[in-house]
Design a protein around this nucleic acid. Structure first.
Length: 906
DNA sequence: GGGAGTACGTA
DNA sequence: CGTACGTACTCCCT
């Protein structure tokens, strides 16, 4: 059975636009997506439920149609279509293009006419026809072969309008629906009906006289007020009838052949859904498509791959036969049962793709000869291995005593350098995008890759699914390597890849494997201490409002208490009400009378917030302590669009430091066994220094060269006083402004943050820019340049594409402008730190020192210092960090030593 | 169990 | 109306 699905793109998207709250559907850059989301969601549902073989979507092109020519008031009186909606129509069409779903719009006709035409063609072609439209005129199309799916409410509830359903609802058969509508009128189209005649009366007349013609013929026989009213409005009724008749012979650019739906553009779907930030929808879509035979028909099916399982002892010969060619490598990894650490998963098997063949090798059966051959392939100097995501591979090999020192290429890192804003760099996606090849889907094709899939290999004998998958992946990596290498080259990132990211990955592996020692007892004490404080704060809060049923962790319940029960003034709006964030609570407390229960409540609530946050941080750390008594974070090297690292599981880059209570958490991070002290070394004001360098501003550079206190210096300039006359208030203002500048802070934002008037903030910024004109010029230029190039660039040439700089959407564009301001500064600082890490690591090794780097927190390194090395390492780290790059001003590094991270602070 | 929303920790 | 991240909690859905 062939089934044709027709959708009225405009009316469905428009319904969605009003059904879904706009503020819940917008991208990070501010693009509204509620209409696209609603339409796409409905589309996916309908496709899933109805399984059409043919799909087509009609759009209105303009309001000018043959109907407005006959009746200028047609659809008049409607509010102007909001711009927020119009802007989404092209996005809807992008979604359709990605799905390769036909769509059309035709001058002078409405979407419904196009649908009527398609419906006729579809019926003639023998299809069963489904029409999904929010316009009731479509009901006239209903018959035995045509069903209308009419959205009842929202975007998820569709009424199935068969002839019977139409009759039940309107009292007439669908072929009489237009007659009925002509009598009753359609307010949405500004077509007034006969006054005093509703659907019931109209249906009765049509039942009596057959059709509208019959009713007209018998007009003078109809009694009562309604009959008179009908006779008075006869012309209007006939006009309504002419206008609501859908045209079914529109000349269309798209016919039944184009409507056949048998493929989609997977890569484009990712692109479009990424841009729209439709994660759930994408999953839903692929869940359906993945279960359907449409998958694979368009992007190339999983290619046949002949994989040979090498016998023990066979590796050397195979490797020999590959000559000096690049080898794609993919590991299977298994977690040893006795250990808990993520970084201790061991490689159990390896798939290798060479120029001529792909092999699978079970590492459990390796002979010394195999091991030698493999070590030779992986060893420094060989530079022949390509992998996807080197870090886990290095870990897994490290665990079985093999070093992977010679990675020639990493397709994940390469893809990141090419397009750093993506959320993931899944190998399967890259294969589709660049090789037009679909990888066989395993249970786990996502970020986890083949990790922990070893249990799929049964007995290690047969070439199980996981091994075969690994082989496909190895082949894909080998094939992708040159493609991505070229793209990296085009993006100017080749040196960055080979001289920075790849060697850094090896260093990160060592940091992750080392972990940082934790004082378990101290951690537990801290937890119970914070737990007590949480309980106390909660009790105080509950006592203050004489109600212990309120969950203080629930913003919803807090809103109830604060704004309804206590009647407090409203704070800033959020999507769901009014904010109860710390700023707002502090503000509310200031509005509240001293000594009142309300004040006591707010005070206790703020305390509760603080201390629950600290407690959950501590609990997170407790859970993260490994069997070796250390915490091993994972550094993500391909997440931050600016080039920074990020830290997960646990995140050790956001351990509290600003408050005294928070700093206590840093006391639990301690020097490791066999080491003497922890050392913390950080760059002071690296982003400000980089901004000074990049801008070439003489004043700022001079300040840094003179080694003055930056904020005092700037404060003196801005306020026109001597540096030693800068008050703490002045310093605070200037400090906030200096940092804010690198983020694209506005005068408005500054005034809000400092709690000063907008005029004062504006004045501050103006004076700042007068004194530091180089900074002003630089910030302007950096955005102009980015707009021209389409990307920003860091000191090491790391690029960040910012297509939204050209957006016509102001919110989006301004967001991109702030990103353009910040990315070179934050990104260059990240570059400098990465270089410094490599230099420090190299020097520690070259000088035969036992100290090791453990953590990186953007501008800080934490080091386990081996006995007797404190001074040497202090020297070394200071030197390597401060000379990592040469700037027009010094890079200052400050170092501290101590038993704990807290004590090492300075 | 998962997602959205809110809140908050770091640089 | 200030960039870049990760995590935890609640609430509401499936």
């Amino acid at each position: 059975m062939t089934r044709l699905l027709l959708l009225d793109g405009h009316s469905l998207a428009y319904r969605a636009f009003f059904a879904l709250p706009a503020e819940n559907f917008s991208t990070a850059t501010g693009q509204h997506t509620n209409a696209v989301y609603g339409f796409t969601s409905m589309l996916i549902n309908v496709i899933r439920d109805e399984r059409p073989t043919h799909v087509a979507v009609a759009f209105d092109r303009s309001r000018q149609t043959f109907r407005t020519e006959e009746y200028a008031e047609y659809k008049a009186g409607r509010a102007k279509t909001p711009d927020e909606f119009s802007g989404q129509v092209p996005l809807v069409q992008e979604v359709l293009d990605a799905l390769r779903i036909a769509h059309a719009e035709v001058d002078g006709y409405e979407a419904d006419d196009i649908i009527a035409t398609w419906a006729r063609q579809g019926r003639e072609a023998g299809h069963e026809v489904l029409v999904c439209s929010g316009d009731r005129d479509a009901l006239q199309l209903v018959d035995e072969r045509v069903t209308v799916l009419y959205p009842r409410k929202g975007v998820s509830d569709l009424a199935r309008m068969t002839p019977e359903a139409v009759e039940e609802k309107y009292g007439v058969r669908p072929e009489r629906y237009s007659d009925l509508a002509a009598l009753v009128g359609e307010s949405a189209d500004n077509l007034p009906g006969v006054p005093g005649v509703g659907p019931k009366t109209a249906a009765k007349w049509l039942g009596l006289y057959g059709d509208l013609g019959g009713v007209v013929d018998h007009a003078d026989q109809i009694k009562g007020k309604a009959g008179q009213s009908f006779r008075d409005h006869l012309d209007q009724v006939l006009r309504n009838r002419r206008l609501n008749q859908l045209v079914s012979d529109v000349e269309l650019p798209v016919g039944m052949a184009e409507a056949e739906w048998d493929s989609y553009d997977r890569e484009k779907v990712h692109e479009v859904f990424d841009a729209l930030e439709f994660r759930v929808l994408r999953d839903r879509l692929f869940e359906y498509l993945g279960a359907d035979e449409t998958e694979g028909t368009e992007t190339g099916e999983a290619a046949e791959l002949e994989v040979e399982a090498l016998a023990p002892g066979g590796l050397a010969d195979w490797l020999e036969a590959q000559g000096e060619e690049l080898v794609g490598l993919e590991l299977l990894v298994a977690m040893p049962e006795s250990l808990a650490g993520r970084h201790r998963a061991e490689a159990t098997g390896v798939a290798l793709a060479g120029p001529g063949s792909v092999v699978w090798f079970d590492l459990a059966g390796r002979t010394p000869g195999d091991e030698n051959a493999l070590a030779g392939l992986l060893a420094e100097g060989a530079e022949r291995v390509a992998v996807h995501d080197v870090k886990p591979a290095v870990h897994a090999l490290r665990e079985i005593g093999l070093r992977l020192d010679a990675v020639a290429h990493d397709t994940a890192l390469a893809a990141y350098l090419v397009k750093p804003d993506q959320r993931s760099y899944d190998l399967g996606d890259l294969a589709i995008r660049h090789l037009h090849r679909e990888l066989p889907s395993g249970e786990e094709q996502g970020g986890g890759d083949a990790l922990f899939a070893a249990d799929l290999v049964e007995g290690g004998e047969t070439l199980g699914g996981a091994a075969l998958q690994a082989a496909h992946r190895a082949q894909a990596v080998r094939d992708l390597a040159p493609v991505l290498a070229e793209l990296v080259e085009q993006a100017g990132g080749t040196r960055l890849l080979h001289d920075v990211e790849l060697p850094l990955a090896a260093h990160l592996v060592r940091m992750e494997a080392a972990g940082i020692a934790v004082d378990r007892d101290r951690l537990d004490e801290l937890e119970s201490d914070f737990a007590d404080q949480v309980a106390a704060a909660q009790a105080d809060a509950h006592a203050a409002i004489e109600d212990d049923s309120v969950n203080l962790g629930s913003p919803k319940q807090l809103q109830q208490v604060l704004f309804e029960r206590l009647g407090m003034p409203k704070t800033k709006k959020t999507k769901t009400g009014w904010t109860t964030d710390a700023d707002a609570l502090v503000w509310l407390r200031a509005q509240t009378g001293e000594g009142t229960p309300a004040e006591a409540f707010l005070e206790a609530l703020l305390r509760h917030r603080d201390v629950t946050k600290l407690r959950s941080t501590v609990q997170g750390l407790q859970k993260a302590v490994d069997t070796d008594g250390r915490i091993h974070t994972t550094y993500q090297q391909t997440i931050a669009a600016t080039g920074r690292l990020s830290s997960v599981d646990p995140n050790l880059q956001n351990i509290p430091i600003r408050t005294e209570a928070g700093r206590r958490i840093r006391e639990v991070f301690v020097v490791g066994e066999g080491f003497e002290q922890l050392m913390s070394a950080d760059y002071s004001q690296i982003e400000m220094r980089i901004m000074a360098h990049l801008s070439g501003d003489e004043g700022l550079i001079e300040a840094f060269r003179a080694g003055e206190d930056l904020h005092n210096f700037v404060g003196a300039q801005v306020f026109g006083v001597e540096p030693d006359a800068v008050t703490p208030e002045m310093r605070a203002k200037v400090k906030a402004m200096s940092y804010g500048l690198a983020y694209g802070l506005s005068a408005f934002g500054l005034s809000k943050q400092l709690g000063i008037g907008p005029e004062e903030a504006k004045g501050l910024m103006e004076t700042y820019f007068e004194r530091f004109g180089g900074v002003r010029d630089y910030l302007g230029e950096v955005v102009d340049r980015a707009r021209a190039d389409g990307y920003t660039e860091t000191m090491l040439g790391r690029r960040r594409p910012l297509p939204d700089l050209g957006s016509s959407n102001r919110q989006r564009r301004e967001m991109a402008e702030r990103m353009a301001l910040n990315a070179p500064i934050q990104g260059s600082a990240a570059d400098v730190m990465k270089l410094a890490m490599l230099r420090v690591d190299d020097r520690l090794a070259a000088d035969g020192l036992g100290s090791r780097v453990l953590l990186q927190v953007h501008d800080e390194l934490v080091v386990d210092v081996a006995p007797g090395e404190a001074e040497t390492v202090r020297e070394l780290v200071t030197h390597e960090m401060s000379t990592a790059v040469e700037l027009d001003l010094p890079l200052e590094v400050s170092v501290g030593l101590g038993r704990s991270w807290h004590d090492a602070a300075h």
